[in-house]
């Protein structure tokens, strides 16, 4: 397991956004260090074979549209993730048949030899995402990896907050069922309320 990166370690503040608007490279470095790992992680979990390329494209798109952005540092975060969401949808959803998505738990998966050859390592946790629909997966990943609140997820995916809560509740129920079925985690399942 890789070391965890906390997105809030170098928060994107209003001041950083203001300096980024002026083309301050240092401000952009702060933003990229803050949001980049989460964006690349979101792309990675969504099955993008080139998550860092996606991340770079997201920031270039954000830079080109920054003059139209209105809001504070927190709003900037969900705004950037909305760009990431759109990029991933545009890049991979239309040709998902050609994309190597996480392997389903039902799939026996590649043999150790095959893994050694292809370099594809998909964890059981990532594979569990396969039970979700595209939008359910986006909502869960933006919450889990992007660290967005439900309303911010709603803005990012262009849906209403109530709708996203319903999607999230349904997705977590499906995930819980899948993890239970596969024997993931030895303890009993607790109730998790969709916030």
């Amino acid at each position: 397991m890789r070391s965890r990166v906390r997105p809030a370690d170098a928060p994107t503040t209003d001041d950083v956004v203001a300096r980024a608007r002026a083309g301050d490279e240092t401000a952009w470095a702060t933003i990229v260090a803050d949001l980049g790992p989460a964006i690349a992680g979101y792309a990675r979990a969504r099955g993008a074979p080139d998550p860092e390329d996606v991340m770079q494209d997201v920031f270039l798109a954000a830079a080109s549209r920054l003059s139209r952005f209105e809001g504070d540092g927190r709003a900037f975060r969900s705004w950037v993730f909305s760009i990431a969401y759109r990029q991933i949808v545009d890049r991979y959803r239309s040709r998902r048949d050609n994309v190597e998505l996480p392997v389903s738990l039902a799939d026996p998966g590649p043999s150790p030899e095959q893994t050694a050859i292809t370099g594809i390592v998909v964890s059981e946790a990532m594979a569990a995402l396969d039970v979700l629909t595209d939008v359910e997966r986006d909502v869960v990943l933006l919450r889990v990896i992007g660290g967005l609140e439900t309303d911010e997820v709603a803005r990012a995916v262009g849906k209403r907050g109530g709708n996203v809560r319903v999607i999230q509740t349904r997705a977590l129920a499906k995930l819980r069922g899948e993890l239970q079925r596969s024997g993931y985690g030895a303890e009993g399942l607790g109730e998790e309320e969709a916030r």
């Binding site: 965890r4 790992p37 979990a45 889990v144 995930l175 985690g185 303890e187 399942l189």
Partner: peptide, 19 residues
């Protein structure tokens, strides 16, 4: 405690890599 929380922590650890 909750496999979902364990699962979320594992997904974060796997997806979030420092740049």
């Amino acid at each position: 405690k909750d496999p979902l929380e364990t699962w979320a922590a594992e997904v974060r650890g796997e997806a979030l890599a420092p740049l």
